[in-house]
Amino acid sequence: MRKSFFSTPGGYISLTLPGVLLLGGFFIFPLLVVLVTSFIEGGGDSFVRILQDPLFYRGLWGSLVLSFSASFVSLVCGFLIALRMVKLSSRLRNILMLLISLPLTFSGMVVAYGFILTFGRAGFFTILLSYVGVDPVAFSRFIYSPVGLSFAYCYYLIPRVVFNLLPVLLNFDTRKLLAAESFGAGRIRQMFEILIPEILPAIVSAFCLVFSVAFGAYGTALALTGTQLNILPLLLYSKISDAGSDFPVAAALSVVLLSVGTLVMSAGELFASHRKEAHR
């Protein structure tokens, strides 16, 4: 039988080459540039410089706190939403999934302006609250604070949690919960002793994913707080702004951001695989 062109070595190469070139040119090459710039350019001391800068530690701490709080709140909300969605008809669930996915299509800037228009000093919600005696100035200060920023982050982190957890919850054999219930376990007990332990790898994985996203996000933060907030992405932004660029330090900060994100994601994956093995 005559072999088709695509099953020959030439065919394989012609099929894979565009993908390889794209990956190499737009992912691996820029990463290498960042690595080289951070370690070699500017005298090769960019890491020493950021480690000696108190702003770096404040930024790192701010990023960790912001990412953790936004991820935790998103995880709780996303989990509860996914749990409720499991019980809906598939038609209604699909409509809801479409609505929930909308925030993912907006850029961070759009989300930030949306929040300003809603919760800012002259925002729709703020004005509504002023009718019941809430001070608009005090309330709008909230949206420009780190807590307000976490709240804005949740807007696009919750959909990610829902999309991660929903398939797992849909596949969960609910007869285990019925069995536990027949043995006398109440709802809370079923959830904490049966459901959550079993889907924990997916929960950890969802948390790690949204943590990494939040850790590297800067658009919303920039639009809401300018560069006033001490978080690493904004520190990085300040190093590549028109006034006083410092590319080696910016590259070193990029490596830190990348490393933390990769580390967190790897920890999640490691936890999931370890759990799987432990019960075999």
Binding site: R175, L178, A179, E181, S182, F183, G184, A185, G186
Partner: peptide, 10 residues
């Protein structure tokens, strides 16, 4: 179900 004291095997 939790108050019925029944053993269920699925």
């Amino acid at each position: 179900p939790s108050k019925r004291n029944l053993g269920v095997v699925f």
